[in-house]
Amino acid sequence: MDDDAGTTGPTRPAPTTGPRQTWAGLPWPVRTAVTWSACLLVIAAGLWLLGQVAVLLAPLAVALAGTLFLAALLDPVLVRLRRLRVPAALAALLSILLLLGILVGVGALVWNLTASQFGELSQQLDEGLQRSRDFVTSTLPVTDQQLDRLVEQVRQGLSSGAPDPVSGARRAAEVVGSLLLGLVLLFFLLKDGRSMWRWVLRRMAGPRRDLTAEAGRAGWRTLGAYSRGTMIIAAIDALGIGLALVVLRVPLALPLALITFLGGFVPIIGATVAGAVAVLVALAANGPTTALLTLAAVIAVQQIEGNLLEPLVMRRQVQLHPAVILVVVTAGTLVAGVAGAFVSVPIAAVLWRVLDTVQRHRSGEVTRTAEATG
């Protein structure tokens, strides 16, 4: 009997179809699509969580952002006071009092010069609205009854969307609390901001300290440049449009100039809204010819500001694409209303500059490493 008759050779293991083999067997476009989809889902979930936190802490976040904005705006004043050997606490207090004095003084001046014009403007608005109504009904295929129904629907929609007294009181309390918190934080930030930053840097070691210091300086310079540049550009816009309104004898020129100044802190949208208000007041007060001249003046001033002043004042430190600005302003408005629209763009500009600095720092490290090993 052959001893080898009942024996068999070594058997090969049957091929397994585990997760790795299944994944490797998929075409590469499918693997790429699955990987990117998973990454997008994780990013979307993270952004959603951040959005929920931002909504819950919106008053605190807006107060912190506004405090940093004002601190960057007042930092040159604080530095000059400190160079005169003024104590830190007194220098911070004097800087805040200067800011409050300017705001209160400008508000009181505008009110005293224009309070008597509000009654006259009410009558002019009625006449202007009536002229606008006659123009619409005589030019467009719209009857008086259809226009009345449209106006009534708009009025009812605005009334239904208005907040109830309880939520309005709660929102007013939140605004007052945020303002008080912002003032207190502004004082301590001006007084101890630099020592706080040095304390943070001392807790780091090695390359992280240098990277954090560089990114922090870049972000702070960007915020300071944005705050001061925006204030200068908004003031020039307000001065140009205000002078045009005075020349055209449009009532309430000073309040409209003040609205233009405040609107300058909300890029693109703020200037558009402020210009529209000025044109509507001119139309109601002096008729369509003055309104067209006002519109031409607003467009001319904004074109000079956008094409000449903004690149000259802002340089390249805070440049963001207009599409990015629109998205950021819209998101800030949805999260925190008007206050969110004011602070959203400087936050985005600072974050962009910090990320750009980190990327440049890492690229420099990679280059230096490659040169050393080569």
Rank of each mutant, 00 (worst) to 15 (best):
R315Q: 14
E365Q: 15
V200F: 13
L121D: 03
D164E: 15
L211C: 05
G263A: 01
L320F: 02
A91V: 05
S95R: 05
A336D: 07
L320M: 13
T7M: 13
G105W: 02
A172N: 12
L211S: 14
R203K: 15
A54D: 08
F265Q: 07
I304N: 07
V327E: 02
G128Q: 01
V110Q: 05
V175C: 01
Q153A: 13
A297P: 08
R20K: 14
L98M: 12
V354H: 03
V313F: 02
Q21K: 11
R228K: 11
A65G: 09
L40T: 11
G105T: 03
G157L: 12
S160D: 14
A173E: 11
A54W: 08
A45E: 13
R133C: 05
A336K: 05
V350S: 03
A372T: 12
A89G: 10
L254E: 00
A172Y: 07
A169K: 12
P251A: 02
I325T: 15
Q146G: 09
T143P: 11
P267Q: 06
W36Y: 12
R83M: 01
L100R: 07
G364S: 14
L312G: 02
V154C: 09
F261G: 11
R353N: 07
R82P: 02
D126M: 13
L81P: 00
T67H: 04
G224F: 00
Q123W: 05
A65C: 13
S227D: 02
I325Q: 04
R194K: 10
